[in-house]
């Protein structure tokens, strides 16, 4: 489902808020195009209205199996079932980016994906980017160094987006960084120091 790249993700993003919760339950798997065998989900109680589905995925390097209501969003799985509350929810229209995680290495908005869509995938959240010994990821360190955060609520999403941004554009200009961060809202910093942090993070990630 990620074969279409960010555009495909965005298409889901636009579609989701307009679909009633019931209709997601009824038609989620086919409508969102989960076709690869690895992503196929197991439905346990096909006759009930709210059937449960069992998923297997990797989260922050650990294998996870979870049984969820099919309408469960990826961000709900991460926060409520896995207890990884560093991933935040700031909106209900897929536009703030507070929920950004890496799905198979690419930044996605976890509020715009059903948990089922992450079946078989590898998910990285803010809790999973530091080194095993606790040393912060260079991008985390850069945010601290440049005062790229204030209340911290947008921050995990910003850091995840920034890591993906630098992976794709290691030498992004200020203008390119600002454009790339379009999908992440921050109400505290005015973005000034976030941009600086991404620049510093890019430099240290390149080392």
């Amino acid at each position: 489902m990620l074969a279409g790249g960010p555009d495909a993700v965005r298409a889901v993003a636009v579609a989701l808020p307009h679909v009633g919760r019931r209709s997601i339950v009824a038609g989620s798997a086919p409508a969102t195009g989960i076709e690869e065998p690895a992503r196929r989900i197991r439905i346990t109680h096909p006759k009930e209205e709210h059937v449960a589905v069992t998923l297997s995925l990797t989260v922050n390097g650990k294998a996870v199996t979870a049984t969820v209501d099919p309408r469960t969003l990826l961000v709900e799985l991460i926060r409520n079932q896995l207890g990884l509350t560093g991933t935040h929810v700031g909106c209900d229209t897929g536009q703030c980016g507070a929920c950004t995680v890496l799905l198979d290495g690419r930044a996605v908005k976890a509020c715009n994906l059903l948990a089922a869509q992450a079946n078989g995938a590898s998910v990285t959240t803010i809790e999973g980017v530091a080194a095993a010994d606790g040393t912060m990821h260079p991008m985390q360190a850069a945010f601290k160094e440049c005062h790229g955060l204030q209340c911290g609520f947008c921050t995990p999403g910003m850091v995840m987006s920034a890591i993906d941004l630098v992976n794709r554009h290691p030498k992004a200009s200020e203008a390119a960084i600002r454009e790339e961060l379009e999908g992440n809202l921050c109400r505290c910093t005015g973005y000034h120091n976030i941009v600086k942090a991404v620049q510093l993070g890019a430099a240290s990630m390149g080392k």
Binding site: T85, G86, I126, M136, K144, L149, G152, P156
Partner: peptide, 12 residues
């Protein structure tokens, strides 16, 4: 305060 916010350890 930054370390807890940057590592997902904030408690909102």
């Amino acid at each position: 305060e930054d370390v807890r916010f940057l590592t997902g350890a904030g408690q909102y």
